[in-house]
Simulated assay, not measured.
Amino acid sequence: MDGRPHVALIGMMGSGKSTVGFWLARMDGLRFVDLDSAIEEHQGRSVVEIFETSGETHFRDVEQELLAGCLASPQPLVLSCGGGVVLRAENRAVLRARAWVCWLRAGIETLSRRVRSGANRPLLGKDPAGDLIEINRARAGLYAETAHEVIDVDSMNTSQVAERIKLIRPRPIPYQ
């Protein structure tokens, strides 16, 4: 391992975790893993299909297994976590222990604009903005408990968020 810890991005759906994670990994030459995409590949179906056919508990079981596997990698990576990864205490613990965790915090207006109708978002119903408020209320404390750092992303673009992360995250430890 080259001394750099894994970087894990957490936050609500629509906060920019996947986009920022991709750019951060590209900037640093690191592997990027979008946990929801990894789950879809592992299960051979979309997140929506998993929720509909197997239920949220099954999805969370797979999420927990793949999260632990990603963070066990000896090579540093950038990991974009699904919004609900913090719901399980085991996930919060492994994230804090094995990664530098950054909460991309966005206001409801930003989230609503980004997720729009909530299509392909299994936890959003006919009132996406109202659902986002409730989900955020339930998770904000868990994000705060898990994160090493918080970045408010409402007034920032992708490259600004990625640059901010580069500035504040722990630096590589050079080999002696």
Rank of each mutant, 00 (worst) to 15 (best):
residue 55 G to Y: 01
residue 168 I to C: 10
residue 55 G to M: 05
residue 22 F to M: 07
residue 49 E to R: 09
residue 142 L to G: 01
residue 144 A to T: 14
residue 125 G to C: 04
residue 128 P to H: 00
residue 168 I to A: 08
residue 164 R to P: 01
residue 96 R to Q: 13
residue 166 K to C: 13
residue 154 D to T: 11
residue 84 G to E: 06
residue 155 S to K: 13
residue 82 G to K: 10
residue 10 I to P: 03
residue 97 A to P: 00
residue 167 L to E: 14
residue 76 P to E: 11
residue 160 Q to L: 07
residue 39 I to Y: 03
residue 105 R to W: 07
residue 165 I to Y: 00
residue 49 E to F: 06
residue 99 A to N: 00
residue 159 S to Y: 04
residue 94 V to Y: 01
residue 16 G to I: 14
residue 118 G to L: 04
residue 137 R to Y: 11
residue 44 G to H: 05
residue 111 L to E: 15
residue 47 V to M: 08
residue 18 S to T: 14
residue 68 A to R: 15
residue 99 A to S: 09
residue 27 M to Q: 14
residue 46 S to M: 02
residue 72 A to P: 01
residue 170 P to H: 02
residue 82 G to V: 02
residue 137 R to Q: 08
residue 7 V to Y: 15
residue 126 K to P: 02
residue 98 R to D: 15
residue 149 E to L: 11
residue 34 D to M: 10
residue 127 D to I: 03
residue 98 R to Y: 09
residue 103 W to S: 00
residue 69 G to T: 13
residue 170 P to V: 01
residue 48 V to M: 11
residue 134 E to C: 08
residue 14 G to I: 15
residue 80 S to L: 02
residue 63 E to K: 13
residue 55 G to S: 07
residue 41 E to R: 08
residue 114 R to P: 08
residue 150 V to A: 05
residue 72 A to D: 11
residue 28 D to E: 14
residue 159 S to L: 02
residue 158 T to D: 04
residue 24 L to H: 09
residue 89 A to T: 11
residue 104 L to N: 15
residue 162 A to M: 05
residue 41 E to P: 00
residue 109 E to F: 05
residue 88 R to H: 11
residue 38 A to P: 04
residue 109 E to R: 06
residue 62 V to K: 03
residue 44 G to M: 03
residue 73 S to T: 02
residue 139 R to Q: 01
residue 146 T to V: 11
residue 93 A to D: 14
residue 102 C to G: 08
residue 65 E to T: 11
residue 131 D to A: 05
residue 163 E to S: 13
residue 98 R to Q: 15
residue 32 F to D: 02
residue 46 S to G: 10
residue 87 L to P: 03
residue 36 D to Q: 07
residue 138 A to D: 07
residue 34 D to Y: 12
residue 152 D to G: 10
residue 53 T to E: 15
residue 116 R to K: 11
residue 63 E to Q: 09
residue 176 Q to D: 14
residue 18 S to D: 10
residue 53 T to Y: 14
residue 115 V to M: 06
residue 169 R to L: 00
residue 97 A to F: 00
residue 76 P to L: 08
residue 129 A to C: 13
residue 109 E to P: 03
residue 81 C to L: 05
residue 53 T to C: 11
residue 117 S to A: 14
residue 97 A to I: 00
residue 132 L to G: 09
residue 85 V to I: 10
residue 117 S to T: 15
residue 113 R to A: 12
residue 101 V to L: 07
residue 6 H to V: 01
residue 174 P to K: 08
residue 3 G to Q: 00
residue 25 A to Y: 08
residue 175 Y to G: 10
residue 105 R to D: 14
residue 14 G to C: 07
residue 105 R to C: 08
residue 39 I to V: 13
residue 74 P to C: 04
residue 37 S to V: 14
residue 115 V to Q: 05
residue 6 H to M: 01
residue 111 L to R: 15
residue 10 I to G: 00
residue 75 Q to W: 02
residue 42 H to C: 15
residue 78 V to Y: 12
residue 162 A to H: 10
residue 33 V to W: 02
residue 28 D to G: 08
residue 98 R to W: 05
residue 8 A to Q: 04
residue 24 L to S: 04
residue 162 A to Q: 10
residue 80 S to G: 09
residue 165 I to L: 12
residue 173 I to Q: 05
residue 137 R to H: 12
residue 39 I to M: 06
residue 74 P to R: 08
residue 87 L to W: 07
residue 151 I to H: 03
residue 90 E to I: 05
residue 126 K to I: 01
